[in-house]
Write a protein that binds this DNA or RNA. Sequence first.
DNA 1: ATGGTTGCTTAGCAA
Length: 255
Amino acid sequence: MKIATWNVNSIRARLTRVIPWLTEHAPDVVCLQETKVEDGLFPMDELTALGYQATIHGQKTYNGVAILSRSPLTDVTRGFGDGAPDEQARFIVGKVDGVRVASAYIPNGQSVGSDKFAYKLDWLRRCRAWLDGHADPAEPLALCGDFNVAPDDRDVYDPVAWKDQVLCHPDERQGLRALQDWGLEDLFRRHHALAGFYSWWDYRQLGFPKNRGLRIDHILCTGALAARSQDVVIDRNARKGKDASDHAPVIATFG
DNA sequence: ATGGTTGCTTAGCAA
């Protein structure tokens, strides 16, 4: 079983890359972020034609998450359902082939100390609260998405320049760690210990050609699922060439 | 050098 996560930076703008990618890699489940489209305009037919059903939680212009799956997705919920005012479509979860899968688009945070940064930290707290109230560390669960947090300095091309900056600040790293403390493992690090693996490169200033990247897209798994993990790869090829997202997909393979 | 690139929407925001 293959589970992938990919911030596509607009599903409609990315279809010419997403469709051949799905054909090439044939993942069973794909968590998408930044679909940037309201539900009525989601390109459903193009994906169902490839054998995927799309379960979507979108909005106009910004954010938007989805889960593509070959098997039906059941027990679907959208948002945290915690009563907090939140019109931003950033979280969807369902169950497929016996695994609970969530697609999450953690707020970027813009800059340390900004209102958006405070919202990001609060969002991470709400995500932990969702785990506490709605999930079980003993069940097979994968929390996948663009976390907009590089877990440690191995995940940053220039840790000195990025020290205490947004995506690397200790407060957001602690927010991510609180999710792991609940009972989730950064699955990539189960298989790869070295520095220098990135999943996002800024469009600006030749970020990708110069390999100025950060690893901010993650697949976090409970132990029951992590025990079945065979490998995790970041598909840099999907970041290459014309009309690429600024994020590469992360693909986990389970036995 | 407060820049630069991309997407959505169509001037300005978000990333």
